[in-house]
Amino acid sequence: MSEIDELDARLLLLLSDEPRLGVLECSRQLGVARGTVQARMDRLERRGVLRGFPPAVDLAAMGYVLTAFAVLEIAQGRRVEVAERLEAIDEVCEVHATTGQGDLLVRMVARSNADLQRVIDEVVDVRWVERTSTSIALTTPIPYRVRPLLERAKGQPETPE
């Protein structure tokens, strides 16, 4: 089953707001038994819904003030190989296989325009990359988010386990 129920949503919202909370404190705030919270967390981890508790890192505060997106057209059947080579470029933050004109959408960061040129040159030099189109992000009006989906799920009635 791929959906989450109301208690799962409340737990995930709580952990999103306060990722350092322990199981006992989560159980207290949610009004359920400690074992229930632990079982839910274990199940959410097994299903891949909950994938750890990394800190939220602001790359701009670390000096990576530019974010750019590149659409890559690659040689047919070479997605895995290209992705492996892109993963070796530290400034490549994420890569998505896409439909449409390009094959891969790459999010990358850089410290300056000159640094971005260096990163783009590294991406273009990846074997089997045939064409690229890069855009610099000016602002991020809506950052990556899951809260609205969790809020919606929280409002749904609980489903049997």
Rank of each mutant, 00 (worst) to 15 (best):
P143C: 05
A9T: 07
L150S: 09
E18P: 00
R47S: 14
G63R: 05
Q101E: 10
L44K: 13
T159M: 08
E87N: 14
R145T: 13
A9S: 06
M108T: 10
T159Q: 07
L13E: 00
A56Q: 13
V106K: 06
L14F: 05
D115M: 06
D125L: 08
L30C: 13
P160R: 11
I74F: 01
E73K: 15
S16G: 10
Q117S: 14
G31D: 11
L72F: 00
T140G: 01
I89G: 04
Q38R: 14
I74Q: 00
D5N: 14
E3P: 08
Q76N: 13
A56I: 15
E161C: 02
T67V: 09
E91I: 07
A97I: 10
R111L: 03
A56E: 13
V126F: 01
V71A: 13
A39G: 10
P141F: 07
C26I: 12
L14P: 03
P19H: 09
P54D: 11
R111I: 06
L104V: 06
V37K: 08
R47G: 07
R85V: 01
I120G: 00
G102W: 05
E84D: 13
E45F: 11
D115C: 10
R111M: 07
R40V: 06
V57A: 02
L116V: 06
V37N: 04
V37T: 11
R127V: 04
I4E: 02
A70P: 04
L21E: 02
V65Y: 05
V49D: 07
R43F: 07
L24Y: 11
V32E: 08
V65L: 04
V126G: 01
P148Y: 12
T140Y: 03
V37G: 05
E3F: 09
L44S: 10
V119K: 09
A60N: 05
V23I: 15
T98N: 01
E158A: 15
R107M: 07
D121V: 03
W128S: 02
A83G: 10
S133K: 12
V146Q: 15
G63C: 03
G31K: 14
D90Q: 07
L30I: 13
L86V: 08
V109R: 09
R85Y: 01
Q101S: 04
V95F: 02
V95M: 01
V49F: 14
E130H: 06
L72D: 00
V32N: 10
V80A: 13
E25V: 14
T36R: 06
R131A: 05
V124W: 04
L86C: 09
H96W: 07
A110G: 09
R43M: 11
R85Q: 12
S27G: 05
L105P: 02
L11T: 06
Q156E: 15
L66G: 01
E84V: 02
E45Q: 15
V92P: 03
L11W: 08
D90E: 12
P19V: 08
E91T: 07
L86M: 08
V57D: 01
A97Q: 11
L138E: 09
A68Q: 08
P160T: 04
R20W: 11
L116H: 03
E122C: 01
T159W: 04
R107Y: 02
T99L: 12
R107T: 05
E45N: 13
D42H: 12
R78F: 03
S133Q: 15
G48A: 11
T67A: 10
R118Y: 08
P141S: 04
E151C: 05
L7R: 11
V32D: 07
P160L: 04
A61H: 02
A110D: 07
V95E: 01
L150E: 06
